[in-house]
Simulated scan of single mutants.
Amino acid sequence: MNTDYIGLKRALEVQGVNIPSYNAVIIGAGGAARAAAFMCGTCGVRGLVILNRTVQKAVDLAGDVKKAFPWMNVSAMPLSDAGKVPFENFLAIQCTKVGLAPDNAACPVEDAAFYQKLAVAFDCIYNPEKTAFLQRAANTGKKAIGGIDMLTYQAIASFEAWTGKEISNEMADGIRTELSAFIREQNRPKNVVLIGFMGSGKTTVGAKLSKKLGMKQIDLDAMIVEDARMPVTEIFRKEGENGFRRRETKILQKLIEDGTRDCVISTGGGIVVQEENQPLLKALGTVVLLEVSPDTVVRRLGKDSTRPLLQGPDRVRKVRTLLVRRQNAYARSADFTVDTNAKTADEVADEIIRRTIG
């Protein structure tokens, strides 16, 4: 019994997809792709294109499908030609591991023309629930279905085959809900640590993330101020930048020693300058770099006089110089980067959630 075949068919049908009414495009040529191709043939799909990086594997699979379903129009194409598939309003079934957690940002097809042509996108991947592939399809207004339903019905098919007991639709819905909750909880980062230049939105985005994820927000600068019993500007005046950086290290070490969990941690813009802080940040959780341009920094900060490193004339030049100086340290410290220049705090927070939990 092939549970891939059963799970995929039932997952599509439950989502209201009339399989034989579409031509289909399958991405991949492995075991899941084979099950998907033979499901298409069994259901009466008339036209099928198989896309794969290694074209010969797609050709071989297409040949096997053609032997089983001689009436079917089956062809193979390189994945790089995805935008040139000869169908309109087709069913796309993504069967590769591209986009599987933790590589959530990866996408098997980059060509925008592909997403404009399709009608329904299905991804066999269930972790994350909404892959980059599905997100791109949804962004073009197309129906996007994740692999959690396929996983659910694969499990149900196995259970029914072994026990002879039938699972009701109501029970299936409950199983799906439990599976989804379990996967999201497993993906939940220990902490989300926000790094980036001043004005990148770490505190604002941190507040949004905290609310959306139900996690406590920690502002590292606020902790330093409380510990030192004086404002940041005063610390810089009395202890210099090196003194402030040592205080940052001390706070990071304390958070780790205390076993801090389920927090969104907003850091100071220069925390990566102290090299010993970089592994400490990673030890705390998933580190997200909020990227920002010099012009955006100056626009957002306006005439803010509380930033010790930006005092005096020609602020744009100072920002650009500091950004260049810190660029490599930011890159070494971050698990991934989000460009914040043209996004609202809510949009940035939603992207972080998608790329961590899914």
Score class of each variant (00 low, 15 high):
1 M>S: 13
2 N>D: 15
6 I>W: 07
7 G>R: 02
10 R>N: 13
11 A>P: 05
12 L>G: 08
22 Y>Q: 11
29 A>S: 15
30 G>W: 11
31 G>T: 07
35 A>H: 01
47 G>E: 09
51 L>A: 05
52 N>S: 14
53 R>F: 09
55 V>S: 00
62 A>N: 06
64 D>I: 02
66 K>T: 12
67 K>P: 00
67 K>A: 12
75 S>E: 13
75 S>H: 09
81 D>E: 15
82 A>T: 07
86 P>G: 10
93 I>K: 08
94 Q>H: 15
96 T>C: 03
97 K>H: 07
97 K>R: 13
103 D>P: 08
105 A>T: 03
109 V>R: 12
115 Y>V: 04
123 D>R: 07
127 N>M: 03
131 T>G: 01
132 A>C: 05
136 R>S: 10
138 A>F: 02
141 G>I: 04
142 K>H: 12
143 K>M: 14
144 A>Q: 04
147 G>R: 11
148 I>S: 10
151 L>M: 15
159 F>S: 10
161 A>L: 14
163 T>W: 08
166 E>L: 06
175 I>N: 02
177 T>F: 11
178 E>M: 11
178 E>G: 00
184 R>M: 07
185 E>Q: 15
187 N>S: 00
187 N>H: 00
201 G>W: 04
209 L>I: 00
216 K>R: 13
218 I>T: 01
219 D>K: 00
219 D>N: 13
221 D>V: 00
225 V>M: 10
226 E>A: 15
228 A>R: 05
232 V>D: 02
238 K>W: 08
239 E>T: 03
243 G>P: 12
244 F>M: 07
247 R>W: 06
248 E>H: 05
249 T>I: 07
252 L>W: 02
255 L>W: 04
256 I>G: 09
256 I>Y: 04
270 G>R: 05
274 Q>M: 12
276 E>D: 15
277 N>L: 02
280 L>P: 09
286 T>C: 10
289 L>I: 09
289 L>T: 08
290 L>H: 11
293 S>L: 13
293 S>Q: 14
296 T>S: 13
300 R>F: 12
302 G>A: 13
302 G>L: 11
303 K>D: 15
305 S>K: 14
306 T>L: 09
306 T>K: 13
312 G>C: 10
321 T>K: 14
322 L>V: 02
325 R>T: 12
331 A>L: 00
342 A>D: 14
346 D>L: 02
349 A>W: 02
353 I>P: 10
356 T>Q: 01
358 G>Q: 01
